[in-house]
């Protein structure tokens, strides 16, 4: 069977492309989470300036297509600031900034979903705002957010395919190169679709498992 032969033939090349896709996704999501925590705290703070900074950031990212962000940062920044991007660094930076905006909203929602009595109880014991956030509020917020965070992981994973426009050899770019050689567009694009589908399915079931494990006796 042709599909199977091609699958075997290109398996090694897909594994290295998969490695890039997963690496970029995982690194970006990690950084995006940190960005998200900081900006979410900006958003709920009582300081107007911090709130505005967060709002402008989110509005720019949400209001422009990812592909424009990729082209702007990858080609635009070096022109003005006079440096050359390492493609891996560029990929992670771009995806982090993009996912960071969405994570900010997720994390803000998570923090606000935690009962406000939790903060009061923690503060009344003498914990500072930061200690209460880290020990009490964020762990509960992440628990609430877990399903939407996994969802964001899936979205970012699929979004990395757009990095093919700057020739990062992730799954889609890898497929484009292969198709240019063997002309098997039908089979190869079906194959890359299946690769994505499998990874996403695995992630979804891991998400469900984690959710069950962290239910604290409920």
């Amino acid at each position: 069977m042709k599909f199977f032969d091609l699958f075997i033939k290109y398996f090694p090349s897909y594994m290295s492309a998969m490695k890039i896709t997963l690496w970029v996704t995982a690194a970006s999501l990690l950084i995006a989470t940190l960005i998200g925590v900081v900006f979410a705290i900006f958003k709920i703070s009582k300081f107007r300036i911090l709130k505005s900074i967060a709002n402008v950031y989110i509005s720019i990212i949400r209001g422009t297509p990812l592909i424009v962000q990729i082209l702007f940062i990858y080609f635009g920044f070096p022109m003005v600031f006079g440096f050359k991007w390492d493609w891996m660094v560029a990929s992670v930076v771009i995806m982090s900034i993009n996912a960071g905006a969405y994570m900010t909203e997720l994390i803000r929602g998570g923090i606000e979903a935690v009962d406000k009595g939790q903060m009061e109880a923690a503060r009344s014991l003498g914990l500072s705002y930061g200690q209460a956030m880290i020990k009490i509020i964020l762990p509960q917020a992440f628990r609430i957010m877990l399903p939407s965070m996994i969802n964001q992981f899936i979205v970012t994973l699929k979004d990395t395919s757009l990095l093919s426009v700057i020739a990062v050899r992730e799954l889609v770019q890898n497929t484009k190169i292969i198709v240019a050689n063997n002309m098997e567009a039908f089979i190869m694009y079906a194959m890359v679709g299946i690769y994505y589908w499998v990874v996403v399915s695995v992630l979804s079931s891991i998400a469900k498992m984690i959710e069950r494990r962290t239910s604290y006796g409920k």
């Binding site: 009962d115 009595g117 939790q118 009061e120 109880a121 923690a122 009344s124 009490i136 509960q140 604290y216």
Partner: peptide
């Protein structure tokens, strides 16, 4: 100053 709340506010995690 210890404080006890109407809705307990125990840390559920």
């Amino acid at each position: 100053i210890g404080m006890v709340f109407q809705h307990f506010n125990l840390f559920p995690h």
